[in-house]
Every structure is written in structure tokens, then in C-alpha cells.
């Protein structure tokens, strides 16, 4: 679906924010889940500047570091899409985006157990494969150095 999402992004790129919102309201009224999802994502993407600015502002006030703010932006953008799947009682996308961002800051701010903010580990990492004959000298050196250090 990723490729088709980007094609849809391209087709919606020429539309003004209010036109996208009108399409979104149409999709909500007709309960067209697929269109609704695509348009909610589009509105959330267009709200990212508001989310980012709000997270930085509020994050700074509660002492969040840069990384925690990035996580809050991520959480807020997901939550805004969730909200736009069903909530039509808003008149300003900026207001709803800022409100979701403020809530996300409260959720992401560090807690006592430190579990809330954990840096992402890369999904893949390089694993050094042993190559026959390569690096043996270095290993020997390291072992010798370690054994010397262990000696009293």
C-alpha cells in the first residue's frame, strides 16, 4: 500500500487544505473507510508543522529533551489520524492538532520508571562475520594485552 499512498499524496498535493478537508468530510459522511484513512493521513501530514511547534513549545516547558519531543511528534501524528477517523466536531484542524500534541507531551514526558522514553534501536544491525585468517593478529594482540593486565 505504501507505493499507492505516495501516488495518492502526489494526486492530493495540488489541492488546498480546505479542499482536502471537504473530501475528508465527504468520506466521513459516506463512511468510506478506505478514503477516510487516506484523507485523515493527508490532513495529519499537513498538520505536522503545528504538531511539531506545539510539541517543542510544551515539551520545553516540561523539560523534555530533543529526542522526547521527536517521540511526542510521532505519537501525536498517529493519534491525530485516529481522531480524524471518527471525530467530525471540529472547526479548526490547527486547534485539534495542537490539542493532540499537548496531550502527547503529557503522555511521553519522562516518568518514574523511565519506560516512557526509550530511544529506538535500529531494526537491523551489522553483524561482523568471521573471515578466515583475517583479524587473527589483532585478536592475538588483544588476548596478550588482556592476559598482561590480569597479571598482578
Amino acid at each position: 500500500m505504501k507505493e499507492s499512498l505516495y501516488r495518492i499524496d502526489a494526486s492530493l498535493a495540488t489541492l488546498d487544505y480546505s479542499e482536502v478537508e471537504a473530501l475528508w468530510r465527504e468520506a466521513v459522511a459516506s463512511n468510506d473507510q478506505k478514503d477516510l484513512l487516506v484523507l485523515a493521513r493527508q490532513l495529519a501530514l499537513r498538520s505536522l508543522p503545528v504538531i511539531e511547534q506545539t510539541c517543542r513549545l510544551c515539551g520545553r516547558r516540561v523539560g523534555l529533551d530533543e529526542w522526547a519531543c521527536v517521540l511526542a511528534v510521532e505519537e501525536a501524528s498517529i493519534k491525530l489520524v485516529l481522531r480524524l477517523l471518527h471525530d467530525v466536531r471540529w472547526s479548526s484542524l490547527g486547534a485539534i492538532a495542537a490539542s493532540v500534541a499537548r496531550t502527547a507531551i503529557q503522555e511521553v514526558r519522562p516518568r518514574g520508571n523511565g519506560r516512557a522514553v526509550v530511544p529506538l534501536r535500529p531494526a537491523r544491525r551489522l553483524v561482523p562475520l568471521p573471515i578466515p585468517g583475517f583479524g587473527q593478529d589483532q585478536r592475538k594482540d588483544t588476548e596478550e594485552r588482556q592476559s598482561k593486565e590480569e597479571r598482578p
Binding site: 508543522p49 511539531e52 506545539t54 510539541c55 511528534v73 510521532e74 495542537a98
Partner: peptide
Amino acid sequence: AMVFANRPPTKADTPSLDSPSYKRA
């Protein structure tokens, strides 16, 4: 925060595609 909340997003607000938070979001 009030200003951000009360103005609709505009094209001028488009974040940089290189911004880490934009990429992650």
C-alpha cells in the same frame, strides 16, 4: 501555542523533509 492552534496549516508551514521528526512521523 494559541497562535499555532488557531491558524490553519499553510503551504508555507511545510516542514523540511530532512527534519528528523517529519521523517519519523
